[in-house]
């Protein structure tokens, strides 16, 4: 009887870890399958309320054209500032209108570059950085030479959002933005 009991014990000792492994692997397979199912995404009709889709760079602003002004998206205007079609000052004037209905102490921070985290660049490279402040009596743009020190509190607070877009020529441009209460 003794050898039989030993046999049973050894069978159990060998078999149990294997069974445990099988159960764990089955669990991983099931988890993996659920992950794959979840990434398929929704199809069909999606309803959105107005403005919910909008980031600050999907808002319209007025830009001067040959005669009068034209309404264009902040995104298009920003890309055309980079290509030289629109002047920096004209673009800043257009951005002022976005801050007009906001309370004093609101800020709009926008940066564009060919590398990720465009707002982190300093001095000369920050030519496509914009920092617009609404004060009690005025709306003004900060000089981009001091943009690095101005943007640092926003970076520390982790409030910047980043996205990227691809241009017709295949160039990927990175945009960092923030629109809300000023952070200092």
């Amino acid at each position: 009887m003794r050898p039989n009991r030993r046999g049973q014990e050894s069978k159990f000792l060998t078999g149990f870890p294997v069974l445990l492994l099988v159960v764990v692997l089955i669990g991983i397979f099931i988890g993996f399958s659920f992950t794959l199912t979840a990434t398929k995404g929704a199809q069909g009709v999606i309803a959105e309320r107005g403005r919910e889709y909008g980031n600050s760079f999907y808002q319209p602003i007025n830009q001067p054209i040959t005669i009068g002004t034209q309404e264009i998206l902040v995104l298009d205007a920003l890309l055309r500032v980079d290509s030289g079609d629109i002047k920096r000052q004209a673009f800043e004037n257009g951005l002022y209108a976005l801050l007009a209905p906001e309370p004093a102490g609101s800020c709009l921070v926008l940066a564009l570059d060919r590398a990720p985290k465009p707002g982190a660049k300093s001095g000369q490279e920050a030519r496509n950085d914009f920092y617009i402040i609404k004060e009690t009596n005025a709306i003004r743009a900060e000089n981009f030479w001091i943009y690095l020190s101005l943007s640092e509190p926003y970076r520390r607070a982790g409030v910047f959002s980043e996205t990227s877009v691809v241009l017709h020529d295949g160039t990927r441009m990175y945009i960092e933005y923030y629109f809300g209460r000023c952070v200092s």
């Binding site: 990434t39 889709y53 309404e71 264009i72 995104l75 990227s164």
Partner: peptide, 29 residues
Amino acid sequence: QTGEMSRLSSDAATLESYAIAVSAMVGSS
């Protein structure tokens, strides 16, 4: 594959948002 898909998907989402924003802007105007 997911990395590539994610970038493609993100670019498609940007283009969709752009199309919606321009249509809304011009329509509203």
